[in-house]
Write a protein that binds this DNA or RNA. Structure first.
Length: 426
RNA sequence: GUGGACGUAGCUCAGUUCGGUAGAGCCCUGGACUGUGGAUCCAGUCGUCGCGGGUUCAAAUCCCGUCGUCCACCCCA
């Protein structure tokens, strides 16, 4: 109907309204996720949706696609440059420092869930406002933290009934060995610049590692000629990567080693991982993360190891559809209170109101005929209907209809709650 | 940011080739059945055919622009 007005206001490109019954699926998703996070000992941190632009420039990285061309950045009325968060980790790191969280505990397990914003070209499973769940484990230097983070991500997916996904792992080295490898790549690539695509020539300057996961044929061939990063890792990183994989094996997680896996953000070190769904198209990354031992120090905090990941809830929900997981319905209607005539309507209204202290109850609000009410009762799939007409009004004994069998019983008002409770198995 | 497909009722879509007064199914509402739903049958509501402009006696249909969605790239969640 809104279409009639010309010049009507539309939702912003890349945003959407999640309507019922779709919104029930989101509630289910979040509830299941919070449950798993609770089992792993994580607590929620709720931060602002926008931050000083500088936070992302410094942390996410000046040269990254996100900072270069995907941020919603604007000036507030005082002329400060602010940015709608494109990812969650920088805010968590900032809060950890600003609120002194590490002074209270050596290990922090924090999760967040909510909207992120990136100015990208929309596609199925990719929106400009999208929902992410992130889990950060702060203060743990060892590979057990890495493995636990992967495990947590996998458990989130399994809890939702998903099984058709693949875990990919790699190591991107530490502050010591990564620069060595970057130098090596530059040396190797400098002779082959003409064989690289335009993007990769730019990557060559900014972050040569990212040439490794370019999909252009020529670049792939060039990349093949470069020894994998694993061969350039320092002894510590190399052994940690082996231990990381061993830990995954210990808890029965299968994974693929992917030397081309290079995360797009500057702050990652050592362990990196991504999880892709096997049945999704190009937008198949369900989540990814890794270790970021330098980030908190970069923001002016104490040197602090940390590992974490972010998962895309939109795509996870797409996977849930793809794998045809049965999402349990929202609370079904338990009782429909119907009136035979106008005379019974008041009583129905009062009865419905009081039954709602215990049951999910529907009652007609439009003054419709009994037949119409029964149709409505049927279409909301109620278990029972209570029918009130002249007889019931004068006797105080109501007619209760079992909507599955069609059988009816007479139940006095004072016994009604107990009767329904019993029949509903509550 | 690049290339391509598509936009018709709340939903799924036909009609566009070759211009001629907007259709179907589902949903919704009412009735057949005036104290009873699910099956069946009958009837009814909803559209300025995404928006704006152009060509034409006449445009859902042809042309241009624009907005949006989808696919691939890019990037990733």
């Amino acid at each position: 109907m809104g279409k009639k007005e010309k010049g009507r206001i539309q939702s912003i490109r890349g945003t959407r309204d999640i309507l019922p019954p779709e919104s029930d699926r989101w509630l289910w998703l979040e509830e299941r996720c919070r449950c798993v996070l609770g089992r792993f000992g994580y607590s929620e941190i709720r931060g602002p949706l926008f931050e000083h632009t500088e936070l992302f420039q410094k942390g996410t990285g000046e040269g990254t696609d996100i900072v270069l061309k995907q941020m919603y950045t604007f000036q507030d009325r005082a002329g400060r440059s602010l940015t709608l968060r494109p990812e969650g980790t920088p805010s968590v790191a900032r809060a950890v420092i600003e609120r002194g969280l590490l002074k209270r505990a050596k290990v922090l397990k924090l999760y967040y869930i909510g909207p992120m914003f990136r100015y990208d070209r929309p596609q199925a499973g990719r929106y400009r406002q999208f929902d992410q769940l992130g889990a950060e484990l702060v203060g743990v230097p060892g590979v057990e933290g890495d493995a636990e983070s992967v495990h947590l991500h996998v458990m989130l997916l399994r809890e939702l009934g998903l099984s058709q996904f693949t875990v990919k792992v790699n190591s991107v080295g530490c502050s010591k060995c990564r620069p060595t490898y970057s130098r090596l790549m530059r040396e190797r690539l400098s002779d082959e610049l003409e064989n690289l695509c335009e993007d990769c020539r730019e990557r060559f300057e900014r972050n040569p590692l990212r040439v490794l996961d370019c999909k252009v044929k020529g670049c792939k061939e060039v990349a093949q000629g470069v020894p994998p990063i694993l061969e350039s890792l320092c002894d510590e990183c190399r052994s940690q990567f082996e231990e990381f994989k061993a830990r995954l094996g210990l808890i029965g997680l299968s994974f693929q080693e992917d030397p081309g896996l290079v995360r797009g953000l500057d702050y990652y070190t050592k362990a990196a991982f991504e999880i892709h769904h096997d049945l999704l198209g190009a937008q198949s990354a369900l989540g990814g993360g890794g270790r970021y031992d330098g980030l908190i120090e970069l923001y002016g905090g104490p040197p602090t190891p940390a590992v974490g990941f972010a998962a895309g809830l939109d795509r996870i929900l797409l996977s849930v559809e793809k794998e045809e997981v049965a999402v349990p319905p929202a609370l079904p209607v338990e009782v429909y209170v119907a009136s035979v005539s106008q005379a019974g309507r008041e009583k129905c209204f009062v009865l419905a109101s009081s039954l709602r202290e215990k049951f999910r109850v529907e009652v007609d609000l439009l003054g419709r005929s009994l037949q119409a009410q029964m149709k409505a009762a049927n279409s909301v799939a109620t278990r029972f209907s209570v029918i009130i007409g002249e007889e019931e009004l004068s006797s105080g004994i109501y007619t209760v209809r079992d909507m599955e069998s069609g059988e009816q019983e007479k139940v006095p008002e004072q016994d009604l709650r107990e009767y329904l409770r019993r029949r509903l198995g509550l």
